[in-house]
Amino acid sequence: MQKSLHIDPDKCTGCLQCELACSHVNEGVFNPAKSRIKVFNFHDQGRMVPYTCTQCDEAWCMQACPVDAITLDAETGAKVVSDALCVGCKVCTIACPFGTVNYNASTGKVIKCDLCGGDPECAKACPTAAITYVDANWTGLDRMRQWAAKTDAGAQAEA
């Protein structure tokens, strides 16, 4: 069974330990600006919402990439960017309707969540279990899926 990151914003305190863990594992330094997961703070509502790629089925980023730099990790289901192949054209960044591929000007490539190869550091770092790594059909990703379906320019198989 493939697993997904399950995010429960109600548990999030906004501490950014996930961003620290993500930037540490991917960039080798503590640098929230380079994290693949981002916590949004709705300060006048008292809501903190961690947010990253859901490895959506449509994989807009992967489809849009002109040079095959984003591929599917068959084991985890993650859509993974290859730094060696990415030319930094940024097409994926506008194609992903969730805004979860970002351009990193200091490398000239894009960054996105790769599920840490199946051992997500952000989930391990979260002190409140607001981020967990669980069986995909438990994650309640339905809302995201609905959203994704709406973006789809071609709804499938009406017949």
Binding site: T93, A95, C96, P97, F98, G99, N102, A105
Partner: peptide
């Protein structure tokens, strides 16, 4: 603008 630009597409296309 480079961060999270894709959501603009999402918001537009989801109406």
């Amino acid at each position: 603008l480079t961060d999270h630009v894709g959501v603009i597409r999402g918001l537009i296309q989801n109406e």
